[in-house]
């Protein structure tokens, strides 16, 4: 089995042929996708299209975290679910769809809300995290956990006619290493006042607006994985020195992009804008040498994210 001449199964060459022939993916990129694992936190308007395109591309293992069940009001934008599955947990419903699209992938369903108790244990077995949640408490928890475990994070959000997307902690270096990408706390050191936070339920959301942001999350994840994730403890990095391209179309490898924020506004002209972001903040509570967000602080419960974000009503949905 190890001496096999063809590193992919025959049907995989067929299924992934259209992306395999591209120099940006190639055989090495496809193998990286196959052996990679991505955790999608939140299986709503962002998580549905993101998970669909990740599964389509051949990501070997996809974890889905969400404590909600499918409601009729989700269906205008949460396209992995269906009318017949209203009432089913979102993670179960999504697993059904993903399996139909690509049965070669492994799909793991975590049907409760992410909490500081569970975050580290769940995140540990994934290479990359997608933040597809809808509230500040989850966003800080996810970013902190990604920094502690050295996982790159693709974070997006959407409301009404607008969307935002950032790639964080990429490259994922240990806290204190200024070569690592900024984390969520570098960009937003303090949470917004609870009364300024508007949910999609209250503010409304146009389906394709959140859809575009979710698809772009999948794209950023695929770019990071095919380029090769550099693990923070240098011992176990994944063949970063090997040449990346196997095809005749030789191309220079694509270096990681500088930190940026992509803004989308459906009714503005131009609709998309790219913002340059800062690098790691020297006093960041999470990713700096002076970090106070430690593994112990997180697991002991001394970081109360809900309290920190001053949520007015209890967080219902993740």
């Amino acid at each position: 089995r190890y001496a096999k001449a063809w590193p992919l199964e025959k049907h995989e060459y067929k299924r992934y042929g259209r992306q395999l022939i591209m120099p940006e993916v190639g055989l090495q990129g496809q193998l990286r996708l196959k052996t990679s694992s991505v955790l999608v936190v939140g299986v709503g308007g962002l998580g549905c299209p993101a998970a669909a395109y990740l599964a389509g591309a051949g990501v070997g293992k996809i974890g889905l975290v969400d404590g909600d069940t499918v409601e009729e009001s989700n269906l205008h934008r949460q396209i992995l679910h269906s009318t017949g599955r209203v009432g089913m947990t979102k993670v179960e419903s999504a697993t059904v769809s993903l399996t139909q699209l690509n049965p070669t992938g492994e799909y793991l369903a975590y049907s409760s809300r992410l909490t500081p108790d569970t975050a580290i244990e769940i995140f540990q077995s994934y290479d990359l995290i997608l933040d597809c949640t809808d509230n500040p408490a989850s966003r800080y928890l996810i970013s902190d956990t990604c920094v502690l475990l050295g996982k790159p994070l693709v974070s997006a959000s959407a409301l009404r006619t607008e969307g935002q997307l950032m790639v964080l902690n990429s490259p994922p270096r240990p806290p204190g290493d200024i070569l690592g990408g900024p984390c969520y706390r570098c960009i937003f050191p303090k949470p917004p006042p609870a009364e300024s936070v508007v949910s999609c339920g209250d503010g409304g959301i146009l389906g394709p607006v959140v859809g575009v942001m979710g698809v772009l999350q999948a794209l950023e994840a695929i770019k990071i994985i095919t380029r090769g994730i550099q693990h923070p403890d240098l011992i176990c990095h994944i063949d970063i020195d090997k040449p990346r391209f196997q095809t005749n179309n030789e191309m220079p490898p694509n270096p990681p992009e500088p930190p940026s924020l992509l803004l989308f506004s459906a009714y503005s002209n131009p609709p998309f804008r790219s913002i340059r972001l800062r690098s790691r903040k020297s006093k960041c509570a999470s990713c700096s040498a002076q970090a106070i967000v430690t593994r112990e602080a997180l697991t002991s419960g001394s970081l109360d994210y809900v309290q920190f974000c001053g949520i007015v009503s209890p967080v219902e949905a993740l």
């Binding site: 960009i187 949470p191 917004p192 300024s196 924020l261 913002i275 340059r276 972001l277 903040k281």
Partner: peptide, 15 residues
């Protein structure tokens, strides 16, 4: 207030 990004000519004002 926290939660507002200020962008100066398409760059985070922290830059």
């Amino acid at each position: 207030r926290p939660g507002i990004l200020v962008l100066i000519n398409d760059a985070d004002w922290q830059l």
